[in-house]
Protein backbone atom coordinates (compact mmCIF):
# COMPACT_ATOMS: atom_id res chain seq x y z
CA UNK A 1 0.00 0.00 0.00
CA UNK A 2 2.68 2.40 1.05
CA UNK A 3 4.83 1.43 -1.89
CA UNK A 4 1.96 2.08 -4.26
CA UNK A 5 1.47 5.50 -2.78
CA UNK A 6 5.16 6.29 -3.18
CA UNK A 7 5.20 5.19 -6.80
CA UNK A 8 2.29 7.45 -7.53
CA UNK A 9 4.07 10.38 -6.02
CA UNK A 10 7.38 9.49 -7.66
CA UNK A 11 6.09 8.92 -11.15
CA UNK A 12 3.73 11.85 -10.85
CA UNK A 13 6.69 14.06 -10.33
CA UNK A 14 6.65 15.49 -6.84
CA UNK A 15 9.34 13.29 -5.37
CA UNK A 16 11.62 13.38 -8.38
CA UNK A 17 11.40 17.06 -9.06
CA UNK A 18 12.12 18.10 -5.49
CA UNK A 19 15.88 18.22 -5.98
CA UNK A 20 16.21 19.85 -9.42
CA UNK A 21 13.55 22.38 -8.55
CA UNK A 22 15.60 23.43 -5.55
CA UNK A 23 18.70 23.42 -7.75
CA UNK A 24 17.31 26.16 -9.98
CA UNK A 25 17.87 28.93 -7.54
CA UNK A 26 17.95 32.07 -9.57
CA UNK A 27 20.78 34.46 -8.96
CA UNK A 28 19.62 37.96 -8.15
CA UNK A 29 19.36 40.07 -11.27
CA UNK A 30 22.35 42.30 -11.93
CA UNK A 31 21.69 45.96 -12.40
CA UNK A 32 22.61 46.27 -16.06
CA UNK A 33 22.61 50.08 -16.05
CA UNK A 34 26.36 50.58 -15.45
CA UNK A 35 27.25 48.07 -18.17
CA UNK A 36 24.80 49.67 -20.57
CA UNK A 37 26.22 53.12 -19.84
CA UNK A 38 29.73 51.85 -20.44
CA UNK A 39 28.68 50.53 -23.86
CA UNK A 40 26.26 53.28 -24.92
CA UNK A 41 28.09 56.28 -23.51
CA UNK A 42 26.21 59.09 -21.85
CA UNK A 43 22.96 59.04 -23.82
CA UNK A 44 20.73 56.06 -22.94
CA UNK A 45 20.14 53.53 -25.73
CA UNK A 46 16.95 53.96 -27.72
CA UNK A 47 14.67 50.96 -28.17
CA UNK A 48 14.54 49.86 -31.81
CA UNK A 49 16.51 48.76 -34.88
CA UNK A 50 17.77 45.68 -32.97
CA UNK A 51 15.96 42.35 -33.16
CA UNK A 52 16.55 39.45 -30.76
CA UNK A 53 15.56 35.94 -31.79
CA UNK A 54 15.45 33.74 -28.71
CA UNK A 55 13.01 30.94 -27.89
CA UNK A 56 10.48 32.14 -25.34
CA UNK A 57 10.98 28.81 -23.58
CA UNK A 58 14.46 27.30 -23.57
CA UNK A 59 14.73 23.59 -22.80
CA UNK A 60 18.18 23.74 -21.32
CA UNK A 61 20.10 26.78 -20.15
CA UNK A 62 23.43 25.29 -21.21
CA UNK A 63 22.82 26.03 -24.87
CA UNK A 64 20.17 28.45 -26.08
CA UNK A 65 20.10 29.61 -29.73
CA UNK A 66 20.29 33.37 -30.13
CA UNK A 67 19.84 35.33 -33.35
CA UNK A 68 20.65 39.03 -33.52
CA UNK A 69 19.93 41.42 -36.34
CA UNK A 70 20.28 45.18 -36.66
CA UNK A 71 18.60 47.36 -39.29
CA UNK A 72 21.54 49.00 -41.04
CA UNK A 73 22.73 49.46 -44.65
CA UNK A 74 26.23 48.40 -43.46
CA UNK A 75 27.84 50.96 -45.78
CA UNK A 76 31.07 52.88 -45.14
CA UNK A 77 29.02 55.88 -44.07
CA UNK A 78 26.37 54.12 -42.06
CA UNK A 79 27.03 50.82 -40.32
CA UNK A 80 26.91 48.93 -37.05
CA UNK A 81 30.13 49.24 -35.12
CA UNK A 82 29.38 46.78 -32.34
CA UNK A 83 26.73 44.45 -30.95
CA UNK A 84 26.55 43.42 -27.28
CA UNK A 85 24.56 40.76 -25.44
CA UNK A 86 23.67 41.05 -21.76
CA UNK A 87 21.90 38.52 -19.54
CA UNK A 88 20.87 40.00 -16.19
CA UNK A 89 20.83 36.80 -14.13
CA UNK A 90 24.00 35.23 -15.50
CA UNK A 91 26.88 35.24 -13.00
CA UNK A 92 28.76 37.38 -15.53
CA UNK A 93 26.08 39.41 -17.29
CA UNK A 94 28.14 40.46 -20.34
CA UNK A 95 27.77 37.43 -22.59
CA UNK A 96 29.57 38.72 -25.69
CA UNK A 97 30.63 41.80 -27.61
CA UNK A 98 31.10 41.78 -31.36
CA UNK A 99 32.87 44.46 -33.37
CA UNK A 100 31.96 44.59 -37.01
CA UNK A 101 31.88 46.98 -39.90
CA UNK A 102 30.91 47.47 -43.55
CA UNK A 103 32.86 44.35 -44.57
CA UNK A 104 30.22 42.26 -42.77
CA UNK A 105 27.66 43.27 -45.40
CA UNK A 106 24.81 42.43 -43.08
CA UNK A 107 24.45 43.11 -39.35
CA UNK A 108 23.23 39.68 -38.39
CA UNK A 109 24.67 37.04 -36.05
CA UNK A 110 23.70 33.67 -34.65
CA UNK A 111 25.25 31.98 -31.64
CA UNK A 112 24.43 29.71 -28.72
CA UNK A 113 24.52 31.07 -25.19
CA UNK A 114 24.22 29.93 -21.59
CA UNK A 115 21.42 31.28 -19.46
CA UNK A 116 21.46 30.72 -15.69
CA UNK A 117 17.69 30.43 -15.42
CA UNK A 118 14.73 32.45 -16.65
CA UNK A 119 15.62 36.08 -17.20
CA UNK A 120 15.72 39.21 -19.34
CA UNK A 121 18.21 39.34 -22.19
CA UNK A 122 19.29 42.69 -23.63
CA UNK A 123 21.01 43.38 -26.95
CA UNK A 124 22.69 46.69 -27.80
CA UNK A 125 23.97 47.97 -31.12
CA UNK A 126 26.35 50.91 -31.41
CA UNK A 127 26.19 52.59 -34.83
CA UNK A 128 28.91 54.38 -36.77
CA UNK A 129 27.33 57.74 -35.80
CA UNK A 130 27.69 56.79 -32.12
CA UNK A 131 24.00 56.19 -31.52
CA UNK A 132 23.06 53.17 -29.45
CA UNK A 133 19.94 51.11 -30.11
CA UNK A 134 18.57 48.30 -28.00
CA UNK A 135 16.11 45.45 -27.71
CA UNK A 136 15.23 43.15 -24.87
CA UNK A 137 13.31 39.94 -24.37
CA UNK A 138 12.26 37.61 -21.59
CA UNK A 139 13.17 33.95 -21.73
CA UNK A 140 11.95 31.07 -19.57
CA UNK A 141 14.56 28.37 -18.97
CA UNK A 142 13.26 25.04 -17.74
CA UNK A 143 15.19 22.66 -15.52
CA UNK A 144 15.64 18.96 -16.14
CA UNK A 145 12.99 16.71 -14.64
CA UNK A 146 15.44 14.09 -13.43
CA UNK A 147 18.55 14.43 -11.33
CA UNK A 148 21.62 13.87 -13.44
CA UNK A 149 25.26 13.25 -12.61
CA UNK A 150 26.33 16.87 -12.95
CA UNK A 151 23.61 18.23 -10.72
CA UNK A 152 25.27 16.52 -7.78
Amino acid sequence: MRRRHFLKVGAGGTAILAVPAAAQQLLPAHDLAPLIMQIAGTSPPRPGRVRIGLPSLAENGNSVPLDLAVDSPMSEADHVRSIHVLAERNPRPLVASFQLGPLAGRAQLSLRIRLAGSQRVVALAVMSDGACWSAETEVVVTSAACLDELSL
Partner: peptide, 15 residues
Protein backbone atom coordinates in the same frame (compact mmCIF):
# COMPACT_ATOMS: atom_id res chain seq x y z
CA UNK B 1 32.45 35.52 -21.79
CA UNK B 2 31.44 32.47 -19.80
CA UNK B 3 27.90 32.91 -21.09
CA UNK B 4 28.83 31.33 -24.42
CA UNK B 5 27.70 27.70 -24.71
CA UNK B 6 30.25 24.88 -24.72
CA UNK B 7 31.45 23.90 -28.21
CA UNK B 8 30.66 27.39 -29.46
CA UNK B 9 28.73 27.98 -32.66
CA UNK B 10 28.65 31.24 -34.61
CA UNK B 11 27.14 32.33 -37.89
CA UNK B 12 27.72 35.74 -39.44
CA UNK B 13 28.06 37.42 -42.83
CA UNK B 14 30.51 39.05 -45.16
CA UNK B 15 30.29 40.72 -48.54
Amino acid sequence: GSGIAANPYFAFFTR
